[in-house]
Amino acid sequence: MEFRNSKSEIENRKSKILFVHNHLATFVRTDRELLAEKYRVREWFQRGRAVNLVALQRAVASSDLVFGWFASWHTFFPILLASRMCKPAILVVGGYDSANLPEIAYGSMRGGFKRRIAQTTMRRATQLITHSEFTRREVIQSVGIPAEKIEVIYLGFPPKPTTSILKEKMVLTIGNVLRENLLRKGIAPFVRAASELSDIPFWVVGRWSDDAIAELKSIASPNVTFTGFVDENVLDSLLTRAQVYVQASLHEGFGSAVAEAMLYECIPVVTRAGSLPEVVGDAGIYAESNKPQGLARAIQHALTLDASWGERARERIIQEFPMDARREKLFCLIDRLLADV
């Protein structure tokens, strides 16, 4: 007689992962969904400072592994508890937690309480994941983490269907409009660059999060449109139409927005900051700086390029950053750590 395991029995045999985050950004949600394909995933969402340590201790104790996104207060206690319980803990880092840019008041590594929390959290994790070689070097330098404890696993992107819609001579950038991002994401230089190309429509897409929008509107020329938050259908339409996408950042842990735009065959114009050269490679145009005049020259050049450049950009993301590669590497790392317990 053949006995079949019930669905619940099979589910119960899966390893249990406590998935820790403080914001379900698209790339965080993607990892949660990937892990749920193979493991039993329980979320621990920690938004504020108040931590229910009793409930958290139970959650860590009932899990086989802790998987956290970003080194900060929300991952500090889960990683610390996992370490004390001799349970493996994976921490994905790269961005504010690893940055040290005092000139724009950005990054946990500038010092103080945030630096101590981020460094301690990274050091107590069993394994760190970064999205880029740039961030790996940044963490080694800023935190002193041994190189063998950090694995680079690039973000993954599903391919977008191609379209027959012709590109328009329009220029797009995406980012939440808040004071922190005016320089870090290059939104202010982007808006100023628009005045150098007054016959070309410039679009700034992103939620208005503070009074930064008033400053941007005060410096904007008539060819700049500020959309505020848009839904996926509107964003899809804008990316489909735009010939050029601009990321004039001063720091990027990866640059998921530019990768998404490249999938839509937008020609990327970027700075050489952070991981952007790893993402764009030779499939885009590099601005000499994020100063408005230099940025405008790079955009003007990109607007003269033919459709093959957009196709080249799309192909790079499909070939270099497939979702299957991230899935495989995440599963391999998790299974190895679980086997070592």
Rank of each mutant, 00 (worst) to 15 (best):
E2I: 12
F3S: 13
N5L: 15
I10E: 15
R13D: 14
S15D: 14
S15I: 05
K16N: 10
V20L: 09
H23K: 14
T26A: 14
T30P: 00
R32C: 12
R32F: 10
L35D: 06
L35E: 08
K38R: 15
R40P: 06
E43T: 13
E43W: 02
R47F: 09
L53P: 00
V54N: 11
S62V: 09
D64Y: 01
F67A: 09
F76R: 06
A82W: 02
R84N: 08
A89D: 06
L91I: 12
G95F: 02
S98Q: 01
Y106I: 10
G107I: 02
G107F: 03
S108P: 02
M109I: 04
R110M: 14
G112Y: 08
K114D: 12
K114M: 15
R115G: 10
A118Y: 03
T120C: 13
T120Q: 11
R123P: 03
T130A: 01
T130E: 04
S132P: 02
R136K: 15
R136C: 09
I150N: 08
I150K: 07
I153M: 00
F157G: 01
P159K: 06
T162R: 13
L166V: 04
K169W: 10
K169D: 15
M170V: 09
T173K: 00
N176T: 15
L178W: 04
L178M: 12
R184G: 07
K185L: 08
A188V: 04
P189G: 09
V191T: 04
E196C: 14
E196Y: 14
I200R: 08
F202D: 10
G206A: 07
D211C: 04
A214V: 12
E215D: 11
S218C: 05
I219P: 00
S221H: 00
N223W: 03
N223V: 07
T227S: 10
G228M: 07
F229M: 12
V234M: 13
L235W: 03
L239I: 11
L239M: 15
A242G: 10
Q243V: 02
Y245S: 14
A248R: 03
L250Y: 01
E252W: 00
F254C: 10
F254V: 13
A257S: 15
V258P: 03
E260D: 10
A261T: 13
M262W: 01
L263S: 05
C266A: 10
I267M: 01
P268E: 00
V270W: 02
A273L: 07
P277L: 09
V280Q: 05
V280G: 05
G281I: 07
G281M: 03
D282V: 04
G284C: 01
A287Y: 03
A287E: 05
E288I: 08
G294T: 04
A296D: 00
L303E: 08
G310L: 08
R312V: 03
I318P: 01
M323T: 12
A325I: 02
A325W: 01
R327Q: 05
R327C: 02
L330M: 09
C332F: 08
I334T: 03
R336C: 11
